[in-house]
Structure formats: C-alpha cells, structure tokens
Design a protein around this nucleic acid. Structure first.
Lengths: 330, 330
DNA sequence: ACAAGTTAGGCAAACGTTTGCCAAATTACG
DNA sequence: CGTAATTTGGCAAACGTTTGCCTAACTTGT
C-alpha cells in the first residue's frame, strides 16, 4: 500500500529538542527577536527548523495571543463579476498584509448572515468585511459589541462602521448626463423593487439630475426577482407594457441592463439603434460581448486595498471612517 | 465617547463558574454528551451559557483535537463565472457539512500556490480543494505527505489525489457534433497556447470526432494571453489571417468564444450568420447577452456537493477516487 | 444487608504558543 | 578588584478545549 505519511507535525518542542535549546528560545527566534540569542544559537535553531520541517501552528498562536490572522468576508453572492472582483482584490490585499480570508456566501439572507457571524466569531476572526450586508439582529449585536467591521457598497445599517464604496448619487446623475448628452430626452429607468441604499441612491441621483435638466416625467419600473438579470427583464417588460419603448433606458446595474437587453431582443427591438441602454458598474465583459451598453465604470478590482486600509484603521484608531472610490464615464 | 465594548469573551470556565459545575461538565454538555449529566444540571448549564453569552473558541478546540473545521480552496482566479460558481457551490456544501472555506487566489502561479499551501498548513486546515492547480514543488511535497486533497477541473499533476470534473474529451467531441449537425463542414478551433489537461482534452476530443466524421484538415490557432478573453481574440485574429473566416469555430471555453466574438465584430463579421461559434462551459450569461453562442453546458453550480463528498471520502477511506460530472448540449 | 453495577461529575494532562520574570555568565566601569 | 550593567537563555503560567481516569453516591439484585 502506498501509505500516506502524515507523520506528527513538528512543533516548537521538536525544534528545541533538535537544537538543544529551550522552547522559549526557539519561539523568540521564530518571531524575529534575534537579539535575545547569540548568533550561533540562532544559526543552530535555523538549521533545526529546516531539518525537522517546522511550521508554526496558528491554533496555538491564536489561543495564546487571543487574536488570529483570519478575516471574514460576508458577501450576498458571487455570481456576478462585481462581487468576484471585490472578493479577489480584497483577498490579494489581505494576503499582502499577512492575513487570510474566509469567504461566506450569505445569499442576502439575514438568518444566514447571522449564522455566519457566529461561526466567524468562534473562529476568532480579527475582522469582518460586510459586502452589501443586510440588516439583521446578529449584525446589530456585533456592531454594538464593537466588532471590527468594514462595510462595502451598502452603507452600515446601524450607524457605526467604516465604509468603502462609490458615490451612488453622483453615479446616477452621471448616467443621466450620459443619456442627455447623447441627445435623448425621453428616458426611463429600471430598478429593483426593494432596493438597497445602493440602488436607491443611484435612482435618486438619476431622477434629480433629470429634473434639474428640466425633465418632469421620468417613467420608472421596478420588479422583484432572484437576480438583477431577472429584475431587469421583468422591469423592462412592465415599462414597455406601460409606456412603450422609450429612446433610452437607465439601468441601475449592468446586470439589470442585461436583463432588459434580453427582453428587448425577444421583443424584436434592436438595442443600440431603437433604444439606448446605460448601466452602472462597468462590467469588464461589456467591451467583449456587450458593446451596446454604455456604463458608468467602477474599478471594483481596486476596492481591496482601501478595504484593508480601513480595517487597519478600525483596528488601530477605531472610530468610523469612509473611503469613497472614484467612478468614471468611459 | 460611544465606547466599544469588547468585553472578554466567555469561555467554558466562565460558564462553569456561573453554573457551579466543572469545566469538564460544561464541555460535555456543549458537545451534546448529555447522558453524563442529570437533566437539571444540563438545564442549569444551558441557562448559564445563554446568560454569559458563551460561544466555543475554535482555536482551543483545534489545538486539542489537532484538527480544525477549516478547508482551503486554492483557485487560479475568480474573474469568470466558472470559478465563481465552483467557489460558491463548494462554500455552500462545506457550510452545510459544518466546515468553513478559506479562499486563496493563486493567479495560476506556482510560487503563490506554494506560499498559500504553507500558510494553510499553518492554519491547520483539514483539507485542500485545488481548482485548476498548477504543478509546483510544494504541491508535490504535500501530495507525498498525504495531505487530503481534491482536485477540480485539472487532474492531479502528481498522480495521487481525488478528482472532480467533466469528461473533457467527450465534451470536445460533443462540440464537434454540434457544428457538424448544423451542417457545417469546414470548422476551425481556438485554444490557449500552453494548455492544461482541460483544454488539451477538449481539443483532442474535438479533433478526434472531426476526423472520425471524415474531416482531414482542421484549422487550429493557439495564442497566449492573460485571460481566455485575450487568448480568444488573438487566436481568432491568427486563424482569420491564415485561413480567412471559416463557417464555424469551436472555442475550448466560452471566454475564448467571447474573445473571438469581439475580434469578429471589430472585423465586420456578423457572428451567428457569417460564422457560427461553439463554446464549452455553458456560461449562464449566454442566454442573456450572448445568444449567438452555442455552448456545451456544464453545471458548475453542482460541483460543490461531489467535491465535499470526495473530501469526506479522502478523510475516511483514503485512497483515490473521481467523480465525473455530466455535461449537456442544451 | 452486602456485593455489584450504574449514574453524575470532578481532576488534571495535553495540544502549541507567547512572554514576564528570573538567573547565570559575561562585559564594562570606576 | 569590586560592583554594576548587559547578554543569553531557561522556567513556568496562561490561552480554551477535550477526555481518560477516578470517586463518590445511588440503584439493583440476591
């Protein structure tokens, strides 16, 4: 039988025995406190570490230090590139800072979010990154307890907490300008039925800017659904049924625009020509397979760095803070 | 100042003191071993747990049990829905089985993969899920050490290891049938330059089937690039330059098809009419914004369950095993 | 009533680290 | 040469948990 080895892993004690020194000395050398040992001892211990194949055990370290290198990210899903980009960039930034990311998919459900929060506390995680969090009893408790949290995209639902995201009101206004400057005057807007702070702000910014431009009536449609794709499809259907096809449509997310596109195609409407679509998020796939979509660009792959910076801020300084990311009109 | 609380978290000792019993008793009750205590003691301890707000500390548990509930997933990236679907479904399946997933983005780099493997060992993770792993010195050591591993999509590079994935040779053949049954006879194929077992097998299956159908010359183009999108674009460019536009193109992944689509559009080639594209992966976005792409469907969102099953198998039975997922021709 | 068995629960060691404190041995200083 | 300071390193406690073993106090059977 090709046996699997799985020999007992080396601990500080193993190294200490091999090098003929005490555990304490090995620990200090491992942690870079070399001035507490002579150069030759350090060398001997280094050799022993290599020879027995020692790797520090984080469970022991966490227990003793009462803090781990684990950071939890709770996200409502991963099935679109926005979330994936945030997750990937945050993971990279955490890694660079010596942390390890645990990913939790809450499916936008308060009960699952609470379950995860409790599980993460048991793991003694050092911080929480709440991407598009949903209000829940557990979250409220954690915030009240002062758990180190950074909120992303959706603002902290219970006041306290650091925040990273874009200026959604401004983004909505910019989307309005996009349609207006293309000469379109009669435009509608598609949004989810029970929106978050994100979609509400984008909607508000859009309508505000349109009104400022002198537009009095802004046809809007809302819909519910499992994903923004479905929401876009259904909202487009409702708007078309009510107002016919307008010359321009602002969709509060690119995914909603995709849904609207599908409904248009199935209705025989040619998309950029008959009705122009504008979205928000700047999905990187657009330039490859959705060139008909103009979108407010958001560099979600740049979110990781400020997220980790804010986490650091919360750990050290404490208190609230926010980092508003720029968005473009490519 | 709105002070953050952060009072010392309750431990077994806290509960024991509150309930007037020993730590051992509390531990047993927490772990469901209730027949070692009288009903009234159990009740008293339960109350105490609620009142002091006890949550088990996994660092202590891991240290004592010498195994954690952590499972590491190492993936080459997250920037396409294939990876995202695998990650999300695996996370859900692990969660259901009481595990917690750590996500590591290796960027397909051997050095980063090794760095992550070591970091994960330090976290005392219980298993490793290697999505599209790359051969590396560290991985070889881990495999030789008998670390519990499940390989996904790409086969284990050093022999030993469980595997979950589709039959890529068959998928390639099915893609050939798709083009053939549409009446197309002169088709090309686009693939990455330094392919993995995945793309090689798909290519092999495609060419094999085409030859079996009597096609002797199969124009192929390869390209290198940072993503399959870029690879598809460049490969399409090369093929068009060499062979002109063929009537059908098989792309070994949907992302490559997206790249080819962009090049076609920029060249004024109308895509389904002038040249039919067939891909593999069944990206869920296709039906929304890429209806011109016929694709071999792979339900990556179903991968999580068998992955966790195989991990279980590796833990208990040990030894190799594989789970070939079905694919469709929707 | 006495031995045997069962029930309820405590003691203490161990897991791998970190770190405050102590103690030799060496060096510096007057 | 005597004392003070520095260097080098060990001891042991603590972090929170699990679990083998022990011991009383009951219960049962005869």
């Amino acid at each position: 039988m090709t046996s699997k080895q799985r020999s007992a892993p080396a601990s500080l004690a193993t190294v200490a025995a091999a090098a003929g020194v005490s555990i304490a000395t090995v620990s200090r050398i491992v942690n870079g406190e070399t001035r507490r040992a002579s150069a030759e001892t350090v060398e001997r211990v280094r050799k022993a570490i290599a020879v027995v194949g020692y790797h520090p055990n984080h469970a022991g370290r966490t227990l003793r230090r009462r803090e781990s290198r684990l950071v939890a990210m709770l996200a409502p899903n991963l099935d679109n590139l926005v979330m994936a980009a945030i997750a990937a960039s945050t993971e990279a930034a955490l890694r660079a800072a010596g942390y390890v990311m645990i990913l939790c998919d809450t499916h936008d459900r308060p009960d699952l979010q609470d379950e995860y929060l409790n599980a993460m506390r048991s793991q003694v995680v050092r911080g929480y990154i709440m991407v598009a969090s949903v209000p829940s009893a557990g979250l409220k408790d954690f915030v009240a307890d002062g758990a180190p949290m950074v909120f992303v995209n959706r603002r902290p639902p219970f006041g306290r907490g650091a925040f990273v995201g874009i200026d959604n009101v401004k983004a909505g206004a910019d989307a309005a300008d996009m349609l207006w400057s293309a000469g379109l005057r009669r435009c509608g807007v598609l949004a989810p039925a029970q929106g978050s702070s994100v979609t509400r702000d984008r909607l508000k910014g859009f309508c505000g800017r349109m009104r400022a431009l002198g537009v009095t009536e802004i046809p809007a449609a809302e819909a519910a659904g499992r994903s923004h794709l479905e929401i876009g499809y259904e909202a487009a259907r409702r708007l078309a049924a009510r107002n016919g096809w307008l010359e321009g449509l602002m969709c509060v997310s690119d995914q909603i625009a995709y849904g609207a596109y599908r409904f248009a195609r199935e209705s025989g409407i040619v998309i950029p020509e008959r009705c122009k679509l504008v979205g928000i998020d700047g999905n990187p796939l657009n330039r490859w397979i959705a060139p008909w979509l103009r979108s407010i660009e958001v560099k979600y792959e740049d979110f990781g760095e400020p997220i980790v910076e804010l986490l650091d801020h919360v750990w050290h300084a404490g208190g609230d803070a926010e980092h508003i990311m720029p968005h473009g009109v490519a």
